[in-house]
Computed example of a mutant assay.
Amino acid sequence: MEDKSTVIIFIDDDEKPVGEFASPVNFELDTRKMVDGKHVLKIVSKDPTGKEGVRMIPFEVRNGPAIAIEGIGENAVVDGVIPLMINAYRKGDQKKFLITGSESPQSIPALFWILLIGFAGWLVYYLITYLAVEE
């Protein structure tokens, strides 16, 4: 009788396991062969007495180009014409840093405009009061 547990790894609802190993297991999951989207890693362990344990780990694969969108959020309630800014860029390989196209342009936040108008108003007030004191 073997004294190690067996680990069987499945992806999603596939009946054919990705692999069956004696524990402990060092395993590399190659997501490049998987379609982008939500998946579930199912790990079934069997101990030497025949008892089973199951663990489900949901994860999301995003190997394709990253997509950034500004102008609408998930589950947003919208009305009328909505201007959108969409950018798609690849991540490059994970061994070198990729700058070209890796940043999404974004519009200037409203808080910036509020601060800028507030500062301009204060500047005008300061100049008026400064000039009034000089006279």
Rank of each mutant, 00 (worst) to 15 (best):
E52D: 09
G53E: 14
G53Y: 04
G53K: 14
V54R: 07
V54G: 07
M56E: 15
I57S: 12
P58G: 04
P58Y: 14
P58R: 15
P58H: 15
F59A: 01
F59W: 15
F59Y: 11
E60V: 15
E60D: 14
V61W: 06
R62E: 14
R62C: 06
G64R: 05
G64I: 11
G64D: 13
G64H: 01
P65W: 00
A66E: 13
A66D: 13
I67T: 12
I67N: 02
A68S: 10
I69R: 12
I69F: 01
E70K: 03
E70L: 07
E70V: 01
E70H: 09
G71T: 11
G71N: 11
G73T: 00
G73N: 05
E74T: 07
E74D: 13
E74K: 07
E74I: 01
A76D: 15
A76E: 14
A76K: 04
V77Q: 10
V77D: 12
V77S: 11
V78C: 00
V78N: 06
V78F: 03
D79K: 13
D79L: 00
G80L: 07
V81W: 07
V81H: 04
V81D: 07
I82P: 02
P83C: 10
P83D: 05
L84S: 12
L84G: 03
L84M: 10
M85S: 11
I86P: 00
I86V: 15
I86Q: 05
N87E: 06
N87Y: 04
N87P: 01
A88V: 02
A88L: 10
A88Q: 11
Y89C: 03
Y89R: 06
Y89Q: 04
Y89G: 07
R90G: 14
R90K: 12
K91Y: 12
K91S: 15
K91W: 04
K91E: 15
G92I: 05
G92W: 00
G92F: 02
D93H: 09
D93V: 09
Q94W: 02
K95E: 08
K96E: 13
F97R: 14
F97W: 04
L98I: 09
L98G: 08
I99G: 09
I99Y: 07
T100S: 08
T100Y: 02
G101A: 11
